[in-house]
Simulated scan of single mutants.
Amino acid sequence: MSILSNLLFPPPPSLFITTMSVITFVGISNGGLSEVRGKHIRYSKFVNTNSPNNREEMKLPSRIGMLVAYTPALIASLASLSILDNIGEPRCLLLNSALCVHFFKRVVEVLFVHQYSGHMILESVIPISLSYFISTSTMIHAQHLSQGMEEPSVDLKIAGIIVFLIGITGNLYHHHLLSKLRKKDDRGYKIPKGALFELVICPHYLFEIIGFMGIAFISQTVYAFSFTLGSMFYLMGRSYATRKWYLSKFKNFPTNVRALIPYIF
């Protein structure tokens, strides 16, 4: 506990933030466990799983679905910069800016980088969008409630900026490599190659976790760490399911390529 008190702001006197810290961690982590068990959030290669044959479902083009998923969180983070008073509070400004950059990058990738192979199920798009919007808004709110509290004795802001930039750059680069796998109108899947794809099948998830770690270091609130830990467990489950999918679809898939962490997992 003494180590945590050196690294984190004390929890604010807010039942809402305390409750959301628990719900966010448990909910997102449980999503990772569901991925391992084969119950997937249905987008990308998992779009046709977990669906009874006689069930009518509303589908969106993948590009539209991803925009719906990310845009509300981008709007929330942009609004926080224009509405909330960040003067004299560099940590709040840094957190809000990092969230803006994170979701702006995602929207730009949706529009100009990603190559799509199908559709997204509306009932998957809605919870993803709500999750990002609520988590972003709650993280910003928790940070503002920390204003006036004693700063943690270990200041992680600078480390957080560096870690965040490493994460967002690595994630963008590996998304770029994925986009180069398909030519125009090519909807098939191939085994990714190049950079960390030679060691893990989901390096983009690895760098996404690193980016979230950077955001948590910048924030140093309990909620930001709850969100980051939950996201890490979810992406571990998603990467495990992704590797399992590739092994089932490609007989020549290199078994030495791990799911998320080189040589380990």
Rank of each mutant, 00 (worst) to 15 (best):
I215E: 01
L4E: 14
Q147W: 05
G88E: 11
A216V: 06
V222L: 10
G188T: 15
E198Y: 07
F253G: 07
N54Y: 13
V222H: 02
F112W: 14
Y116E: 06
I209T: 00
D85G: 06
L165Y: 03
T19V: 12
M236L: 08
Y132L: 12
G148P: 07
I140A: 02
H102E: 08
E35C: 10
I64L: 15
L145I: 03
A216S: 08
F207H: 01
S146V: 03
L260F: 12
L93Q: 05
I191L: 04
M236Q: 08
L156I: 08
I83N: 11
F133I: 02
P61H: 13
H102K: 08
I23S: 10
H174G: 00
T49C: 03
I121W: 01
C92R: 01
Y116W: 10
N53H: 10
S117F: 09
S131H: 07
F212N: 05
S77E: 04
I201L: 11
L7A: 15
T24G: 13
G65E: 01
E198I: 07
I75P: 07
N6Q: 15
H174F: 01
S82A: 15
N252C: 07
R106N: 10
L247T: 09
H141L: 07
I201S: 15
Y246T: 03
K180C: 13
N252S: 13
E123N: 14
L130F: 09
G118I: 09
T49P: 03
T228A: 09
T255I: 13
V47P: 00
G118N: 11
F16I: 15
D85L: 09
I134R: 01
R106K: 11
Y240M: 07
N50E: 11
F197T: 08
I64M: 11
S82L: 14
R187W: 08
I210F: 01
I121K: 02
R55I: 08
L15P: 09
V68S: 05
Q143L: 03
L260P: 13
M1A: 14
R91M: 10
N30E: 08
S82V: 12
L172H: 15
R42W: 00
L111G: 09
V36P: 09
L81D: 00
Y263M: 11
L260R: 10
S131G: 08
M66S: 02
G237C: 04
Q115P: 01
V47F: 05
T242N: 05
N171E: 11
E123V: 09
I215L: 06
F133V: 03
R42Q: 13
S179L: 08
R182W: 09
S44N: 14
S137C: 03
Y70C: 07
